[in-house]
Nucleic acid binder design. Structure first.
Lengths: 257, 257
DNA sequence: CGATAAGTTGAACTGGCTCAAGTCATGTGG
DNA sequence: CCACATGACTTGAGCCAGTTCAACTTATCG
């Protein structure tokens, strides 16, 4: 069964500059420069075409728009194309507990796979776009493309490890270590996307960061001020510069990398 | 392609009492009474036979024995047959951070799928046994049995949700809520296995519980004493009786179930 | 039975929280 | 395009839940 050449032709008709821009909503998986972070990695070109057929590409969202809501039926997973997103749950007391930060190339929505219901909500932190992949189609395609199944198993495995790292961070480390770790995490993920590892804009507010890290917003603010006083980072509201990454790693108690 | 009848014959030759006992190491997946919690659920009987062929069944371990170690190559996932296990990581400072508690019917080792290396270690908390499922065989079989693929996706999804719940618990709740939640979690899991939901033995020490919940062992001890004084639980060392589950749920701030 | 690990309880200390009062950024409507 | 409202952020002061340290009791097991 040959796949339709539609996506290829489309890509061929678009000038290269536009094609290579991942913010262009019509760019297909094979041409998306986030492909190497996202699902297509580990697939050969004919497989990517088949994946392309089930992907709903490039829908746009504004800040505050929901990708899905807690309790909603799980239908799709979402690949972030541009912008940034957070996931959160609403606690018994009605407070918001941030459970994840997602940047371009990362996959959201896997929290719905286990029970067919999303266990949390996902909203855009700024203007952004994403690809939607209906899960039943992905499952079906995965039985026919073993490397896709393997890729997705691995992706879910990484999500598990990521969540456990977060758990370890929050349950055993001091507030300063948690903040330092978050900064290093964002830095590393930017680096993977060929963006600056030392200058970036925090997509979350102090309150969101605090919720994510299990501290209050005041503590986050105080830690930023302290790290700035120690010349480890420069903080200008949401604009961050990592001045001394080694010192930051020491504070985060990270030795590897 | 018919599967070998070996496992079936084996089961047929064993008296029912032995067959139905999940601690009997030779019981096959189709006869294991943990099957409904474990991988076989969602498979029909011929599919279970094919699964049976790749499962290494019923190996036994003593307290303190390792199932796998942090950093080790990932080869298999493990289904707990009897006993209880913990997973943990060793932090930079050499301290042990408990990341999970596993009871019969539950699957361990999924932390290795993402990177082909186990991100933590797993040890037996008491005498126990398990089934080992080589992951490459499971993957291969999953491409041929869609319902097995689906089952495993769902299992990984549940692991993700479980880890996120733990994160939420640790990052937003008071120590007493965390302890209460752990007791309720064990109670619920016992209930699923048709064991007492109100009387059980804690498989972990106070130090392990504390590490898992992100508090000190002294705090765990004090909370047990306090809950006992309030007639919510009865604590006799590791032996626990849940006296007033409703009160415990109120303390844990759980409203559903 | 004795050694060692596990658990309890008390007392003092402290990191992060709460509450409060302010400044700064952002964006919306007049 | 400015003014003003609202949300985001900072900083200070006092407080408290949980930690730390310590002394002791109780289990467990070779």
């Amino acid at each position: 069964m040959k796949s339709t050449p539609k996506a290829v032709n489309l890509a061929k008709d678009i000038p290269y500059a536009a094609r290579s821009c991942h913010t262009n909503p019509s760019v297909s998986c094979g041409d998306c420069r986030l492909g190497e972070l996202c699902l297509p990695i580990a697939l050969d070109s004919s497989e990517i075409l088949r994946l392309d057929e089930i992907v709903k590409r490039g829908r746009a969202l504004n800040k505050g728009d929901f990708l899905y809501r807690e309790g909603e039926e799980f239908k799709s997973i979402f690949a972030i194309r541009s912008g940034s997103f957070k996931t959160f749950k609403t606690t018994h007391e009605g407070a918001e507990q941030v459970t994840g930060l997602f940047l371009p190339g990362e996959i959201m929505g896997m929290d719905g796979i286990g029970s067919n219901k999303h266990s949390g909500s996902a909203v855009a932190l700024e203007t952004g776009s994403f690809c939607e992949i209906p899960f039943h189609l992905l499952e079906e395609l995965s039985t026919r493309i073993p490397s896709l199944q393997g890729r997705f198993f691995r992706l879910m495995g990484q999500e598990i490890v990521k969540d456990q790292q977060m758990l370890t961070l929050v349950s055993s480390n001091a507030a300063e270590e948690r903040v330092a770790s978050l900064l290093l995490s964002i830095s590393k993920r930017n680096h993977r996307r060929k963006l600056s590892a030392t200058h970036f804009r925090l997509p979350m507010t102090r309150a969101e960061i605090g919720s994510y890290l299990g501290v209050t917003l005041e503590t986050v603010s105080r830690i930023f001020s302290r790290l700035q006083k120690q010349n480890v980072v420069k903080v200008d509201n949401k604009e961050i510069e990592l001045v001394d990454i080694q010192a930051l790693k020491r504070i985060a108690k990270v030795h590897e990398d």
